[in-house]
């Protein structure tokens, strides 16, 4: 269901001739603006029918749909291991987890739809490559240990990012995030547990776990986005109570969390500069490879093409099914209308 956008043309297009309607619309917009400002100041929630600035709406659609796309593309690397999971219990847990990701995609697309952008439109943006998704999914899940590393580090970074989003000013987004976070925290635990089992298993298993952590650590830290100085949208998102902490603050929080967890796993994090800074009360860590990050964002990661081709193939192969379902629903609706007319 799409919610109609409030009409704001009188404000948006000052060159229009001022009519009675335009005056009324301008009044409505002014009242809406004041209400919106008040919600921001009181840190209250904006709901779909509330007036909101176009830029707020656009920012949210971009952020929420990117998040949804990340869930959808994120099904691929882990889905890659469903058929080969090494025990039936692991297979079962992994299947449930990937299915959860699909569910998260669904809540998030629904939240974005309340802002007036249809799910089909968002699908199309992903299909054409116009929309972005989290770059980490452009790296391969080569071994079973990657399933563990994705759970521990990727879902772990996601939770660190998402817990504050449960308080995001836009109601449907914040509420979707509450449920997403509950499931993600379960995902993180299962990832950690996979790695724990591997790191306490055979020498080969331990090596597999260490290798996956070595490959995942850097891209996971980059999930928080560029350093604060290079993140132009962050300030505005914070002013609108969408974002609560800066990229670097969240990244620091994550590093501080995973260092002791890595010790408990008996695995090392691939950063020789990682050490406790007494003065700051935080771990120091080395600069990340931002050239690589931006290169992957621009489409040059190892699997950008594969991920998108997989998604497109699924959409293309399913087109006839969606057409059939729509045609059938239309016929059913006609039949219902027909019988209603007959009985009238």
């Amino acid at each position: 269901m799409s919610i109609k956008k409030p009409e704001l043309r009188a404000v948006d297009s000052p060159n229009q001739p001022i009519t009675q309607d335009a005056h009324e619309a301008a009044d409505d917009a002014r009242v809406g603006w004041e209400h919106f400002q008040q919600l921001m100041e009181e840190d209250k929630r904006v709901e779909p029918r509330d007036w909101m600035p176009e830029q707020y709406r656009k920012t949210l659609v971009r952020q929420v749909s990117q998040h949804a796309h990340s869930e959808i593309i994120g099904m691929q690397p882990e889905g890659n291991w469903i058929s080969r999971a090494p025990s039936l219990k692991r297979k079962s847990v992994l299947m449930a987890k990937v299915q959860d990701e699909a569910g998260h995609g669904l809540y998030l697309y629904s939240a974005a739809e309340t802002l007036g952008t249809s799910r089909d439109e968002m699908y199309q943006q992903l299909y054409t490559g116009k929309a972005k998704y989290s770059s980490i999914f452009n790296y391969p899940a080569r071994t079973w240990a990657d399933v563990g590393a994705i759970g521990w580090l990727v879902d772990g970074a996601a939770i660190t990012n998402q817990v504050p989003l449960c308080r995001a000013s836009y109601g449907p987004y914040g509420r979707a995030m509450v449920r997403v976070c509950k499931e993600e925290s379960f995902h993180q635990r299962q990832g950690w547990e996979i790695l724990y089992t591997l790191s306490h298993g055979t020498e080969e298993q331990k090596q597999m776990a260490q290798d996956a952590v070595d490959r995942t650590y850097g891209p996971a830290l980059q999930m928080f986005g560029p350093p604060d100085g290079d993140s132009p949208n962050s300030q505005q998102s914070m002013a609108w109570n969408i974002k609560r902490f800066s990229n670097d603050d969240l990244r620091q929080r994550f590093v501080d969390m995973i260092v002791p967890q890595a010790e408990a796993l008996g695995l090392t994090l691939p950063d020789p500069e990682l050490k406790w800074n007494e003065e700051r009360g935080h771990y120091d860590y080395a600069d990340l490879d931002w050239d690589e990050f931006f290169s992957v964002v621009k489409g040059n990661g190892p699997l950008n093409h594969q991920r998108l081709a997989h998604y497109r193939a699924a959409r293309d192969n399913g087109a006839w099914v969606r057409e059939a379902a729509a045609a059938y629903a239309a016929k059913q609706a006609d039949a219902t209308r027909g019988s209603a007319l007959l009985s009238a």
């Binding site: 691929q76 299915q99 699924a314 192969n317």
Partner: peptide, 29 residues
């Protein structure tokens, strides 16, 4: 059925087919 997850015609079907696969795996276990 597990192969359909991420390849279904619609997101709801990724979930439905995944769910059925998961149920069947449970019965097998």
């Amino acid at each position: 059925l597990g192969h359909w997850i991420s390849r279904a015609p619609e997101l709801e079907e990724d979930i439905a087919l995944g769910n059925i696969a998961l149920d069947l795996l449970g019965h097998a276990r």
